[in-house]
Simulated assay, not measured.
Amino acid sequence: MNRVNITLTYSPQRSQDTWSETVAHLEIDEDLLSKYENLTWTYRDVGRMIPMTTENFFSGHFFPYSQSVEEFQVSTNLAFSGFYKQAFISLRGALELGLMSVYYNINDDGHDFIKSWLKAEDSWDANTPSAKRIWNILLSNENIKRFDGKYGLQNLFKDLGFLSNYAHAKGYKYSNFVGKIKSNYQTFELKVFIHWLDTYEKIVRLVTTLHMIKYPISCIRYDWDRKVGFDNPFPVCDIPIVDRLEEIIGYDFFNEIQQIANEDDATQDLMNHIFDMPDLTEQAREDKIIKLDKLMIECGNGFEAWKENEFSFYSSVSSVAKQKMCELELWAKLNGHYEPKF
């Protein structure tokens, strides 16, 4: 049996050691840990604002946002492992993708607009848009333009321009040494970690704010579940989520978005439409669940893959769930959705 014996300065063991040091510090510094957790969960909630319908469910309009979530995860892994330069580069990716999420959905046609970029086609509209083009499109939205004029969102973006220095290794400060006199391998550097987390916070605040301005109804506190259920096609958020959003973006930003929501005709029309909807019955809720299950089976990898994913977290399955599973299995076989499409 061949053995791979490569001597690495930046070794996996160093990563594990740095990870342990980082976690040990966070267990002591509860404020730092709480800050990271609140930012991470709040940004996950941003996805609730992006409308999901049967028309756009697998269209790719959600892709830039979901990729930005993954970039934050990658950045976290790198920061915890002591790869700070690379962690900042991933933060830059999260920022760009977060902006693109609003950019592609600015006119609520992201499911059509994004197709060529998603497929990486050889055409001008398939290229990743420049920051200048992104902001030109973002500011075509009157609410974003109004907010930018008052609070300078573009300036908040420009303040994050230093992230490109890490991508291009602009001198000692932006190298793997991150401007420190340190060992030439991964080490836990508290000041650098705090700088990384502060940058994380600025990106989450900016991108979250832009999504909320695009969907001002997201700041309205109301029991939306009684009207629409869990598979909410509207850009509304549960009350605890709204509370977290306000905490992250700050009172001034949140108050301005509330004013926009109150004055925006489209937002008021949508609110009135939802308010006029009848409250969901238990049967209606169950029908929504079945409809989503069928969509996941049809557009996913078939019934068997759905079944494995659906019940992998349960130690036992109730009789009601078994009955539903049997009915969906029969439906999948009759409609050609039992086996994976690809």
Rank of each mutant, 00 (worst) to 15 (best):
F253R: 09
T54D: 14
I239E: 14
E71P: 00
A87Y: 01
S66A: 09
V102P: 02
K288Y: 01
K291G: 06
N5D: 12
S319Y: 06
F275I: 13
F62Q: 12
T22H: 08
L156Y: 08
F63C: 03
P216D: 03
D287S: 08
Q323K: 14
L97Q: 07
I274Q: 06
Y222E: 10
L270I: 05
L270E: 07
F72H: 04
S312L: 00
D265E: 15
R221M: 10
N5M: 11
A120W: 09
G60I: 08
S315E: 12
A94K: 02
S15I: 06
F193D: 03
D112R: 15
E298G: 00
T209S: 11
K85S: 09
K288T: 07
M49N: 05
F58I: 09
V207T: 15
W41Y: 14
Q283Y: 05
I274T: 09
V192Y: 00
K150P: 00
I203C: 07
Y84T: 03
N141D: 15
D125Q: 07
S75I: 06
K145E: 12
A321C: 01
H61E: 06
L206R: 03
D238Y: 07
L206S: 02
S315Y: 04
D31N: 15
E201P: 02
K85L: 10
N5F: 10
F58S: 11
G152M: 07
Q283W: 01
Y251G: 02
A24W: 05
S130V: 06
K115E: 13
L8K: 12
H168K: 05
W41G: 10
K145W: 04
E121T: 05
L99E: 07
P278Q: 07
L197Y: 08
L330D: 13
L8M: 13
S318A: 07
E121K: 12
N38C: 04
S75L: 00
R14I: 00
P216Q: 08
K35G: 11
S90W: 05
I220L: 08
H168M: 04
D276I: 02
K35T: 15
L328A: 08
K202V: 00
E282L: 11
M296V: 03
L139P: 05
W41N: 13
I28R: 15
T40F: 14
W117Y: 13
D269M: 13
G47I: 03
T9F: 11
W19A: 00
N2L: 09
N5I: 13
Q13F: 07
K132G: 02
V178P: 02
K85R: 15
T18Q: 06
H273K: 14
S318H: 07
P51C: 06
F303H: 05
D125E: 13
Y65K: 08
S318D: 10
M325V: 03
K150F: 10
D109L: 11
G110S: 12
Y215I: 01
D269T: 11
V320N: 10
Y174D: 08
R226L: 13
R205A: 05
F303I: 02
G229E: 02
R3V: 14
E310A: 12
E70V: 15
T267V: 06
K227G: 01
E30D: 12
D122P: 01
F162G: 03
Y43F: 15
E189M: 04
I144M: 06
C237F: 03
K150A: 14
L292W: 04
I297Y: 05
D252P: 02
L206Y: 02
N262G: 08
V317N: 02
